[in-house]
Nucleic acid binder design. Structure first.
Length: 289
DNA sequence: AACACCCCCTGTCGGC
DNA sequence: TGCCGACAGGGGGTGT
């Protein structure tokens, strides 16, 4: 579900409710998500102050006054919502959606923060701050795509000699961390690159970036920034924390547009869907070469 | 090291 | 209306 823009949208929505506030009460309504929740999970959260809310790739991080970091991943269907009220009052779960409310945090800000995840591909970890960068799930992550260290030379170097497809390479979080299926498809269309080309073409014989690699990096940054500004993309599950829909999906040029005419001026191609690595790729075979 | 699969889980949608 | 298969924004783990 959520790629970098959606996770960043969620982070920004949680800041007013959580940053600088204390977790007055915490409740885990089941023992596990994708993985078992940390031992004594609720006890280790209750009473802590959230010193800062961050994001690394598609992970949300809450720095706690205890020195631990609450690491949260939304998986495919995870979402947070922020509501007024407390655990003991009107917030008792009811209705179909509430059946998947797995973690509830009552904050000293007066807000209740609820994590909902029907598919339970999401997970939460508690990691000592000093061990964050070495955690097995986090240490292999590549550069942030919106950071200064993600540039054309870095991408070319990471892809040099690789025979896997460009699509698979850009989805590989070790190469660049935060892209998912939507934004890879969109960025490749913007620069007219076929998702089927081997990733190695992003580097010239000397290992330096080609002109198209420079364009690709620019397109990745642009599409992510535009999507963040739009509050992310709402296909099925994604909501901002106040329940509002993101609206970047209206701007998709290829994703979920199989059979439609290519929007590139003068192209005249038709968007196709193919399967790469078991996942759908949308692209225009006419203008993406 | 690099790569190709498999799987986790629930909900929705289209076809019959 | 019901049933059934395909598919969904991710990524850890395993096997070659």
């Amino acid at each position: 579900m959520p790629e970098l823009p959606e996770v960043e949208t969620v982070r920004r929505g949680l800041v007013p409710a959580m940053e600088g506030a204390q977790i007055v009460a915490a409740e885990a309504r089941r023992p596990d998500l994708r993985f078992p929740l940390p031992v004594r999970f609720a006890d280790r959260l209750a009473g802590q102050t959230v010193v800062g809310l961050g994001r690394r790739a598609k992970y949300l991080t809450a720095d706690l006054s205890s020195g631990e970091v609450l690491v949260m991943h939304l998986g495919m269907s995870g979402s947070f919502r922020v509501e007024d009220g407390t655990l003991g009052t009107f917030h008792h779960p009811r209705g179909k959606a509430a059946a998947h409310d797995h973690v509830v945090l009552q904050m000293s800000s007066g807000k209740t923060v609820t994590f909902n995840d029907p598919r339970r591909f999401g997970f939460m970890l508690l990691v000592p701050r000093a061990e964050f960068d070495d955690h097995p799930f986090l240490r292999g992550l590549g550069p942030e795509p919106l950071g200064n260290s993600f540039d054309a030379p870095a991408l070319a170097l990471a892809c040099r000699g690789r025979k896997t497809s460009i699509k698979a390479a850009l989805l590989d979080q070790r190469i660049v961390a935060g892209l998912g299926n939507i934004y890879v498809c969109e960025a490749l269309h913007r620069v007219g690159l076929s998702p089927k080309r081997p990733a190695g073409v992003l580097a010239g014989r000397d290992g330096r970036p080609t002109e198209r690699t420079v364009q690709l990096v620019d397109a990745i940054k642009a599409v992510l920034q535009e999507a963040i500004a739009a509050g992310g993309s709402s296909l099925r599950d994604h909501r901002q924390t106040d329940g509002a829909l993101g609206y970047f999906q209206h701007t998709f040029r290829v994703y979920d547009r199989e059979g439609e005419a290519c929007s590139r001026a003068g192209c005249g191609g038709t968007i196709r869907r193919i399967i790469q690595g078991g996942r759908s790729t949308f692209y225009c075979p006419r203008c993406q070469r």
